[in-house]
Computed example of a mutant assay.
Amino acid sequence: MALNLLLPVLACLQIFPWPETIAEKPPPTSLSLDPPCAKYLVGEQLMLSCIDPKFGEVTGYRFYNRRNMEVSTYDPDPHGGAKHVFLSLHMDDAGPYTCKYWTAMRGQEILSVESEAVSVSVLEPPSQPALSMDPPSGVIKEGLPLLITCSAPRHTGEWRFRFYKNGVELVPENTRTPLNTMDPGISSVNVSVLSIPRARPDSTGEFTCRYEEKVCQRWTLSPRSQAVNVTVVADNAFLIRFLVVGVSFFFINSLILLISHCCL
């Protein structure tokens, strides 16, 4: 009786056999950036390198973007792994990336575990700095201090600033005008100040500035700022005082003579 009950079950098993055991996913790849930088500029070249852990024969590789959409598929490189190259980065290339490899097994495509994500941060090229001065009018008496401030528009890491007068770069050792640049050389502050302790007539002129920004181990030069005009005027206080005293003396003496003449 029990055998009669098992026969239909055995017949069913022959028609619908047990499925084969599904293979576990192969271990994850490693994904790296070349060059390895925290930020990249628009237009720079970047390479994503996907390397498998030599788990077995690899059929191909896939790269995915921040929306988990497939970016590209590659056959294995002769030297191992696969590379996805951005010849010229754009702003919309920013975001996290991952990769996987797959292998063909029993007619099936077995995908590996996804790699850890790497983040690509893309910045616009350096923009024009802002230039200001103290006094704001740009008109200053001879002998007084003059401050010209150049400000980079964003905080990214490292800067080098340059100041120009009438289109010629100002270098302290190559100019007759005593000057000093605050935050000289490489700075983590996005502001630099050109200081002229005592303005002289030859300090008069058109001033501009620009900065170099270090992004991904490379220095990139910004456009020049808008120009500011400086006019140094001679201190004629002594002459003015002399003229005032002289005119007053002449007026008083003339008045005394006039009164004396009228009274006599």
Score class of each variant (00 low, 15 high):
S119G: 00
S119C: 03
S119W: 06
S119K: 13
V120H: 10
V120D: 11
V122L: 08
V122R: 04
V122P: 05
V122M: 06
V122C: 09
L123Y: 08
L123C: 04
E124P: 04
E124S: 13
E124M: 12
P125I: 04
P125Y: 04
P126F: 05
P126Q: 07
P126Y: 04
Q128H: 01
Q128K: 15
Q128P: 00
P129K: 07
P129F: 09
P129Q: 06
P129G: 09
A130I: 06
A130Q: 10
L131W: 05
S132H: 07
S132M: 11
M133H: 00
M133L: 15
M133V: 01
M133N: 03
D134K: 10
D134F: 06
D134M: 09
D134S: 14
P135V: 13
P135L: 14
P135S: 14
P135T: 13
P136M: 04
S137D: 08
S137T: 15
G138S: 01
G138C: 03
V139H: 10
I140F: 03
I140S: 02
I140D: 00
I140R: 00
K141I: 11
K141F: 11
K141N: 11
K141D: 06
E142Q: 15
E142S: 14
G143N: 03
G143K: 03
L144F: 10
L144A: 11
L144Q: 13
L144V: 02
L144H: 10
P145I: 02
P145S: 06
P145Q: 05
L146H: 07
L146C: 07
L146G: 07
L146E: 01
L147F: 15
L147C: 03
L147M: 13
L147V: 06
I148M: 08
T149C: 04
T149K: 13
C150G: 05
C150R: 02
C150K: 03
S151H: 08
S151W: 00
S151T: 15
S151R: 13
S151Y: 02
A152H: 01
P153N: 07
P153G: 08
P153H: 08
R154A: 08
R154Y: 03
H155N: 11
H155V: 11
H155Q: 14
T156S: 11
T156F: 04
T156R: 07
E158A: 12
E158Y: 14
W159I: 01
R160Q: 15
R160N: 07
R160E: 07
R160D: 00
F161E: 08
F161M: 09
R162T: 07
R162G: 10
R162V: 03
F163M: 09
F163L: 10
F163N: 04
F163Y: 15
Y164A: 01
Y164E: 00
Y164L: 01
Y164Q: 00
Y164C: 01
K165A: 13
N166S: 14
N166V: 09
G167V: 12
G167S: 12
V168P: 00
V168I: 15
V168D: 08
E169I: 13
E169F: 03
E169V: 14
L170K: 03
L170Y: 01
P172G: 09
P172Y: 11
